[in-house]
Design a binder for these strands. Structure first.
Lengths: 201, 201
DNA sequence: CAAGCAATCTTGACAGTGTCAAAATAGCCC
DNA sequence: GGGCTATTTTGACACTGTCAAGATTGCTTG
């Protein structure tokens, strides 16, 4: 029967990547709750269960999107870390600022990356872990460097310090994105305050 | 017709409070995603739409639970703030520690209290705001006191400092609860590290 | 005491969701 | 060209939140 809708043939070609791209767009425009597999499939022009050939379930699709978010953030931080023209203090300050900017510029992506659906119930995919953990490992290396340069307190364990710095950035980002006790108009001064607390002058 | 299930009469008596109590229990045992109105109604022994007479929608029921969580946390902190036997530094350290303990002891409650479903889309109830904001206002007052006592840096804006402290506690709590870059075995040292960064000795 | 009204519930129904299994289609290889 | 595999569609199910109409119950008033 001749169908009026332009439907892809059974072998789409690269449905997996197409689904990830379209789902990322849906996520950014309608948020995590607005992203459903049925809406996604309709937008891509396949049936609602076509994604199940490429992803075990919805969670694995979301994990694939989050993994890409981590890779983008890791590359962004790497460019900053490799900028030799910056003082240690300026680099730390920009690192903190860039993190919050990344989180608030794409709040739904950030919520997905750090949201419980993909991290709970032992459901993390290998791809997600392999994208997420280097992001932290990179910051841990920079933390050691900042301690060696006297910028951050050398008496603290680098790992604990890196965790606390990440926790502070993460908490500020979440409060601002969720609009609890802070909002976008507060961000600049909050970052200045936080940086001032961490660095040793 | 004689029914075999023990069904409450139409006028339950105090269905609103019963729903809140039962929903809190469901939340703590099965998490936010495991809490559905149908499951809740069945547990309480009413029909699935009985809650709609007491709550506009599911979001308002969740907000009522979260408001109670904020009240409990506010009372807990107040007891600490009123303990005159503690030094300023010990009080701050315990404040930080008690917050993380509160968050990690009831992770699903904490996730509800600070989760996006009840804070987004301009859907905050008055009850939620009236419970949540005093919790922060109380900490802001203590922050001013700690600054006056020389424990925290006096040159920072009290409001920004209070926001950053809350952000740090919030971020650490979330990372630990979600198991991203930190877990329960790290908490003690992370708190010690964070407190050491904030206080002036 | 009965009627009327309001409060409070139940039932029928709908739209949407994620997921599974069976069937259909299409590409590739021998 | 037939067989096999990969990839899709379709039928179906269970679950969810919510709405409207109807039923039940309690209270008030005449």
């Amino acid at each position: 029967m001749k169908k009026t809708i332009t439907r892809t043939p059974y072998h789409h070609g690269d449905l997996r990547q197409t689904l990830i791209a379209a789902a990322t767009e849906l996520l950014l425009t309608e948020g995590i709750d607005g992203l459903s597999l049925r809406k996604l499939a309709e937008r891509v022009g396949v049936s609602r269960t076509a994604p199940y050939h490429h992803f075990k379930d919805k969670g694995q699709l979301l994990s694939a999107i989050a993994a890409e978010g981590f890779r983008q953030r890791t590359e962004q931080a790497q460019r900053l870390f490799e900028d030799d023209s910056l003082s240690a203090e300026l680099r730390f300050s920009l690192f903190f600022r860039d993190y919050i900017a990344f989180a608030t510029a794409s709040a739904p992506m950030y919520e997905l990356m750090f949201g419980s659906p993909i991290w709970h119930n032992q459901q993390q995919t290998e791809e997600l872990k392999q994208a997420a953990y280097p992001c932290f490992a990179q910051q841990l290396e920079m933390t050691k460097q900042w301690q060696a340069q006297g910028l951050l307190p050398a008496e603290q364990s680098p790992l604990r310090l890196a965790q606390v710095i990440w926790g502070a950035m993460h908490g500020i980002a979440r409060l601002v994105n969720d609009g609890i006790y802070a909002d976008a108009s507060h961000v600049g001064e909050m970052i200045d305050c936080a940086v001032a607390l961490f660095v040793r002058r």
